[in-house]
């Protein structure tokens, strides 16, 4: 065990540097929070250490003998208690001010901020890029892209129960409450993919409600945005044609939208560019033709309780649908 302990703790610490960690800040807001975390941790550790030392001294000291000495000791302890109270007031007040200053940046606003409306569902995320030009608006799901170096403002809402939005590498945590508008801001410093996780227990598949934030240089972001605004890719070949026909004529189209086709439901995630996302089903599986087919064939085995029903399809139909979904890049 003694030999295993360093290994284990190293393994735990390694968890603090990944794509979902508040200890690996990748933006100014996360920097502030990271600083605040260490300020609190170190201050509290020092206070704890001081209290323990005083306690140890008190335990080891011999009680004073004689009346005069006892009275002097009483005066001493009155002074010590007064000093400790004053120190507590100063420390708590100081931490309060530090906390206020550090968390101010979460609600920052700027004229040129990129605004994304994020809506939580059981158990996935709907993202609306609200551009002032109406023809540049689009809806996507479970993966958002942001340009580096530009303030991003996320407007949070929830469709059913309370969810919470948290990208530890980029910003703090904010609840998404039905019927209430919350918001949160961050700026990504470096390109990369960061994982967000619903941070408020929201039901059976709470743990499988992930969102991926892809930060990329402004030019790459603009390319992505233009691709997302476009209608869905056209099917190539008879198999993909058949896939599109099934998607439109079976139950798929009642809940999902694929812009440019007759599928226009709004109960489930928008699938217009589902093939371009890194993951499907809110971070459950990496996007491959196989995982798309597995998800359509039997969603309740992969994510029990999710609202995606098992739509009866033959093997050929499943092949066609998965071919078409892979095409939707």
């Amino acid at each position: 065990m003694r030999r295993l302990l360093p290994l284990l703790s190293a393994g735990l610490l390694a968890g603090c540097t990944g794509w979902q960690s508040a200890l690996a800040p990748r933006g100014p807001v996360a920097d502030d929070l990271h600083g605040l975390f260490w300020l609190f941790t170190i201050t509290c550790a020092l206070v704890w250490l001081a209290v323990m030392l005083v306690l140890l001294a008190a335990l080891l000291r011999r009680p004073p003998d004689g009346k005069a000495r006892q009275e002097r000791a009483m005066q001493h302890s009155a002074r010590a208690i007064g000093g400790a109270v004053a120190a507590t007031v100063v420390i708590v007040a100081g931490l309060t001010v530090a906390s206020f200053l550090a968390t101010r940046s979460i609600s920052a606003h700027a004229e040129d901020a990129l605004v994304i409306r994020l809506r939580g569902y059981q158990w996935w995320w709907e993202a609306t890029y609200a551009d002032p030009r109406p023809d540049q608006n689009f809806i996507t799901a479970n993966e958002i892209h942001v340009p580096t170096g530009r303030l991003v403002r996320i407007e949070l809402a929830a469709a059913d129960v309370i969810h919470s939005f948290w990208v530890p590498n980029l910003s703090g945590k904010q609840d998404m409450i039905p019927g209430r508008a919350n918001s949160l801001a961050f700026t990504a410093r470096k390109p990369g993919t960061y994982r967000a996780q619903c941070a408020e227990f929201c039901g059976l598949q709470h743990a499988h409600m992930a969102l991926h934030v892809v930060a990329e240089p402004p030019e790459a972001f603009e390319r992505w945005r233009t691709a997302q605004v476009a209608e869905a890719a056209r099917p190539h070949g008879p198999e993909e044609d058949e896939g599109r026909r099934i998607l439109e004529s079976k139950a798929c189209g009642a809940c999902h939208t694929v812009r440019g086709t007759q599928a226009a439901g709004n109960l489930g995630p928008d699938l217009t560019h589902v093939g371009s996302r890194q993951f499907i089903a809110a971070g459950m599986l990496p996007t491959t033709r196989g995982s798309l087919a597995a998800w359509v064939a039997d969603p309740q085995s992969i994510k029990p309780g999710s609202n995606m029903p098992m739509v009866p399809l033959t093997a050929d139909e499943l092949q066609a649908v998965s071919a078409y979904l892979t095409r939707l890049r």
Binding site: S249, A251, P309, V311
Partner: peptide, 8 residues
């Protein structure tokens, strides 16, 4: 018929 599964 083509919008929901029989279970739904």
């Amino acid at each position: 018929r083509d919008r929901m599964t029989p279970e739904q």
